Amino acid sequence: MSDPTETKKSSSLWRALRSSSARYSLLTLLGGGFIAGIIFWGGFNTAMEATNKMEFCIGCHEMKDNVYQEYKKTIHYSNRTGVRAVCSDCHVPKDWIHKMQRKIQAIGEVWGKLTGTIDTREKFQAKRMELAKHEWARMKGSDSRECRNCHSFEGMNLEIQDKSAKKKHAQAAMPGSGKTCIDCHKGIAHELPEGASEKD
Rank of each mutant, 00 (worst) to 15 (best):
E70H: 07
E70N: 07
E70C: 03
K73W: 06
K73Q: 11
T74C: 00
T74N: 01
T74W: 04
H76W: 12
H76G: 06
N79L: 03
N79S: 03
N79T: 05
R80I: 13
T81Q: 08
T81L: 10
G82S: 00
V83Q: 07
R84D: 00
C87K: 05
C87I: 04
C87Q: 02
S88Q: 09
S88F: 13
D89Q: 05
D89E: 04
C90E: 00
V92T: 12
V92R: 10
W96R: 14
W96H: 10
H98Y: 15
M100R: 11
Q101D: 11
R102V: 07
R102H: 05
R102Y: 07
A106M: 14
A106S: 14
I107D: 02
I107M: 10
G108W: 11
E109W: 13
V110T: 12
W111G: 03
W111Y: 14
G112P: 08
G112R: 14
G112N: 14
K113E: 12
K113V: 11
G116E: 03
D119F: 05
D119P: 08
D119R: 05
D119N: 15
D119K: 09
T120G: 00
R121W: 09
R121F: 08
E122V: 12
K123F: 03
K123N: 00
K123P: 04
F124E: 00
Q125V: 11
A126N: 04
A126H: 04
A126D: 04
A126I: 03
K127M: 10
K127H: 13
R128I: 03
E130S: 10
L131R: 15
L131Q: 08
A132P: 08
A132V: 05
K133D: 02
K133A: 01
K133H: 03
H134A: 11
R138L: 09
M139F: 09
M139L: 15
K140L: 03
